[in-house]
Each structure stands twice: as C-alpha cells, then as structure tokens.
C-alpha cells in the first residue's frame, strides 16, 4: 500500500471530519465534509478500490451533499449557538466513550496479526488467500459481483431508493 495515500487521505478525512462537526455554520460543515469525502476517496483509491472511490466523490460529495446544501438554504439556518459545541454536560461522557472506543479498537488490532504479520504486505495477503494477484475493485469487477452474485440485493436497494423518494415527498408535502 502506498503510504502517501494513507497519510494524505487520512489527514483530509480526519481533519475534514473534525472541522465538520465543530463548525457553527452548517454551510461550512458541508464544505468540510466534502473535503473529508475527498480524503475518503483518496483512501479507497489507495486500496485499489477504484469504483468505490469514484462513487464516493460522485454520489456522496456530488449528489448527497448538494442535497444538504439545498436543504440548509431552504431552511435559512442561522449559525447555531455561541458555543460551537452545544452541550458541554454530555460532551464529556460522549468524548470519553468515543475515546474509549478508539482505544479498544487500537488494543484489538495491535494485539492481532493485522498489525504485524504483513497486514498490508502484498506477499503475505497473496499467500494467505492463495491468489495470484491482489483484487482490484474496478468497475468491471464490482459490476460482476453486483449483477451476478448480488443481483437481488441490488434490486432491493433500488426499491429502497424508490420508497425513500416517495417517503421524502410524502413527508415534505403539506397536503397530500
């Protein structure tokens, strides 16, 4: 794995994320979230997951976040509270839990062989899985999976999206 994609993408994703959740202005949050998604996309590309990396930008950063922007503008939101963090009392507990969660994950992965025995090493992965080459998540490869092995879930997802659209219209319409 290329280290620079990890460090660059990780920094973008984490930094963008942190700024997203701490901005007073929701529009600023959206912008930083887009930065975070670009970082995520970089991470995916670095792991040869090309298709996911592309739709991360196209669908997430492109489509979904535009939807957010529209809604924010529609609601004409004013920046919330003087404090960026709205609830100091529960923040401590939330922060502590989140930190404990990360610590636990850290403890779990560093204790296992993911950390040491060539967790990212191409040779080791090939040896462990008995394959000739590493997988690549190109459009063709993912499409092959989607439309052969997982065609039913795929169709179900399309129905879900349709239902979501209908539901969104039903929720926002004043009078049906």
């Amino acid at each position: 794995m290329d280290p620079w994609t990890f460090w660059l993408g990780g920094a973008l994703a984490l930094g963008g994320g942190l700024l997203t959740v701490t901005r007073r202005n929701a529009v600023a949050s959206v912008m930083w979230l887009i930065v975070a998604f670009v970082g995520m996309s970089t991470l995916f590309l670095g792991m040869d997951a090309g298709f996911i990396g592309v739709i991360q930008v196209l669908v997430y950063a492109g489509a979904i976040m535009v939807l957010f922007l529209f809604v924010i503008m529609l609601l004409n939101l004013t920046p919330s509270g003087l404090l960026r963090i709205d609830r100091p009392r529960w923040t401590t507990l939330g922060l502590a839990s989140a930190a404990a969660f990360v610590a636990l994950i850290l403890a779990i992965v560093t204790g296992g062989e993911l950390w040491t025995a060539g967790g990212g090493d191409e040779e080791a992965i090939l040896q462990a899985t008995g394959r000739d080459t590493l997988i690549e998540g190109g459009v063709l490869d993912v499409a092959d999976q989607l439309f052969n092995a997982h065609v039913l879930p795929f169709e179900v997802a399309s129905v879900l999206l349709l239902v979501a659209v209908v539901g969104a219209v039903a929720l926002t319409k004043r009078k049906l």
């Binding site: 529960w90 507990l93 939330g94 839990s97």
Partner: peptide, 20 residues
C-alpha cells in the same frame, strides 16, 4: 437523542471490553 446514542456507545464499549 444524543443521550440515547451516548448510552448505546457506552454499551458497545462495555461489551467490547468484556470480550477483550
């Protein structure tokens, strides 16, 4: 809702700790 989610997270942490 944020209290619910904090409690849920606490639960996850407890369970993970117990497993570990």
């Amino acid at each position: 809702l944020h209290r619910y989610i904090t409690l849920a997270l606490l639960g996850v942490v407890v369970i993970l700790t117990a497993v570990l």
